[in-house]
Amino acid sequence: MLAYRATLDVPRELVQHVAGLLRAERRARGTRRNTRRLTCFYQAMLALVWFRKGEDKTTLGAGFGVSRATAYRYIAEAVAVLAAQTPTLHDALRQVAADGWSHVILDGKLFDTDRLAETTTSVKGVSIDAWYSGKHRDFGANIQAIMRPDGLPIWTSDAMPGHLHDLTCAQHLDITGALYWAASTLDLPTLADSGYDGTGLGIHTPDKQPADGRALAVDNRAHNLLLRSMRCLGERGFAILTGRWRTLRHTTTSPRALGDIVAAALHLTHFEYRHLPQTR
């Protein structure tokens, strides 16, 4: 196997931040000094290379002089530590309101995974692939996210099977309940696309075309135009995550672990965007 020099295009401060979190985790576990193959700094580099470039873990481990199993374990540790830093949904909504933003944006995305053998029973009583999305015609995990009006994602959900619709995921994870609370208590309404139609007060969705084929009234068309013009920036949220952290574009790990992986990438994004209180 040949080795070559490469550059990791992340700020050194981010590597040091992740290394600090890993160091605290090692102390909490009671890990003895000089018993790990890599220092916290190089373990942080290993994890960030994986997030940034999405390289094969076996090859990546060889580049850092560790075995395949050690590379998997080191990356899993980093993912768990980073995911634990993300705020709860209620805390994220409170921070957005405190920062003076007028609304938040709700959206969902199917994160691509390998084909899976897990099956479930559909509402029609038919056995289907649990992680297959008929809408996207692909296998993956459904992740819900809340974005600020400028498109920065502030919170992401646990992974849900790909066959579920966005509204079903939002209701199952009680995201809708938190958003109702934000609208009534924090005066922070939510904008969403038509996939969330029927969510109720506080979550605004476009007016649908009448079933009889008639054109929408002028007021309804104006409402839809205004809603889409304000919501469109929210589409940047997932693009910020997948564009920066390439490992999110396709994963071969268990799709149930995608929630933590996306949450870890969210914390890295918050650090780079100075969205963390300690980095402001």
Rank of each mutant, 00 (worst) to 15 (best):
M147G: 10
V123F: 08
L233Y: 02
T121Y: 12
A170D: 12
T279K: 10
F41H: 06
M230C: 05
W181T: 10
Y72R: 00
Q278V: 10
V126N: 08
D107F: 01
G243A: 01
F64I: 06
P189R: 02
V104W: 08
L21P: 08
P277R: 10
D166V: 08
P206I: 01
G108H: 02
V81Q: 04
Y72H: 03
I128L: 02
T31P: 05
T247K: 03
N142R: 13
L201F: 14
V126D: 15
R23N: 06
P149L: 15
M230F: 08
I146L: 14
L227V: 01
A222S: 10
V96P: 09
G200A: 10
H250E: 13
L216N: 04
P210C: 00
H204P: 00
A69M: 01
T205E: 07
E235L: 00
S184T: 14
V10G: 07
D158M: 09
M160D: 04
F64N: 00
L8W: 07
P87V: 06
L48W: 03
P277S: 08
Y74C: 04
V123G: 03
A19F: 07
T59P: 00
K124Q: 15
A3K: 10
A6W: 14
S133G: 12
R236W: 05
A98Q: 15
D174I: 04
G140P: 04
G162W: 01
Y196I: 01
D219I: 02
D166H: 01
L266H: 04
P255H: 10
Q43A: 11
A78F: 01
F271R: 05
G65F: 03
S229R: 14
D107L: 01
L266P: 07
F271V: 06
A62S: 11
A28L: 09
F111E: 08
H270F: 06
L14I: 05
R5F: 07
I175H: 11
I154K: 07
Q278S: 14
G213V: 03
R33A: 12
F111H: 13
G108I: 06
L173G: 07
H223I: 00
I261R: 13
I146A: 09
H204E: 11
Q85T: 08
G151F: 02
A192V: 12
H250Q: 14
L201R: 15
L266A: 00
D212I: 14
K57R: 15
H204G: 02
V104G: 03
H172A: 15
T119F: 00
F51K: 01
L48Q: 05
L179V: 08
D193A: 04
P189W: 06
T31C: 05
A159N: 11
G100C: 15
E235K: 01
V66A: 02
G237M: 05
P149H: 13
K124P: 00
A117D: 05
R52N: 07
L241F: 02
L22P: 01
F139K: 07
A83E: 03
E77P: 04
H90K: 12
E77S: 14
D207S: 01
T242N: 00
Q278D: 11
T190C: 09
A97T: 08
L266C: 04
A130E: 15
A130M: 11
P149M: 15
I105T: 14
G234D: 07
L216I: 02
W155E: 09
E272S: 15
